Amino acid sequence: MLSQYLYISTAPTLPREDVDAILATSARNNPARGITGLLLFNGRNFLQLLEGDEGEVSELMQTISADPRHSGVSVIDRRSITARACPTWAMKRVMIAESIETRRDMLERDLPEGLDPEVRKMIVNFAVLN
């Protein structure tokens, strides 16, 4: 059974190099686990979408929750899915434009088309905060 998790967390002092390291680790480890998804970081908070086998994603969420580089891990959406929204993304960093005015347009262009409209709205709403 495929599952999709969307969570947020706080990492106000995390340097860019650590974010890059997280992405590199994800790109290296996720394919073997059958996990795909995307990651947004606004300089203070993460929003990550994970999708894959329920057991694998649940196990990864436990690892993520225990990671000391961030705190306040909160799952804001969890659902069973019939198809992946990000089938080719081991873990894609979706960049957030500096200008709040251009964030929505940039995300609409970069987010996968297969995302559930409700999940898409949560991601866009996160990105336009600041």
Rank of each mutant, 00 (worst) to 15 (best):
M1P: 13
L6A: 05
L6V: 15
Y7S: 02
I8M: 13
T10L: 11
A11T: 02
P12E: 09
P15F: 01
R16K: 13
D18M: 12
A21I: 05
A21F: 03
A24E: 10
A24V: 08
S26R: 07
S26N: 13
A27D: 10
A27E: 09
R28S: 12
N29E: 12
P31E: 04
A32F: 03
R33M: 14
G34F: 03
G34A: 08
G37D: 01
G37L: 01
L38T: 03
L40W: 00
F41A: 02
F41S: 02
N42Y: 03
N45K: 14
N45F: 04
F46S: 06
L47H: 04
L47R: 00
Q48C: 06
L50V: 02
L50S: 05
E51L: 07
E51C: 07
G52M: 10
D53P: 12
D53E: 14
E54N: 12
E56F: 00
V57S: 05
E59V: 01
E59K: 15
E59Y: 10
L60Y: 09
M61T: 01
Q62S: 14
Q62T: 12
T63M: 13
T63Y: 08
T63L: 14
S65I: 09
S65Q: 12
D67M: 08
R69F: 02
H70A: 11
S71R: 15
S71H: 13
S71P: 03
S74C: 13
S74T: 13
S74D: 10
R78I: 04
R78N: 05
R79M: 09
R79Y: 03
I81A: 08
C86Y: 07
T88D: 15
T88S: 15
T88A: 15
W89F: 11
W89H: 07
W89N: 01
K92G: 09
V94T: 00
V94N: 01
V94I: 14
M95D: 11
A97C: 04
S99L: 05
I100E: 05
T102H: 13
R103I: 04
R103L: 01
R104H: 10
R104E: 01
M106C: 07
L107V: 02
L107Y: 01
E108D: 06
E108P: 02
E108Q: 10
L111I: 08
E113G: 13
E113K: 14
L115T: 08
L115W: 02
D116R: 11
V124L: 04
V124Q: 08
N125R: 15
A127M: 02
V128S: 07
L129C: 09
L129E: 10
N130C: 09
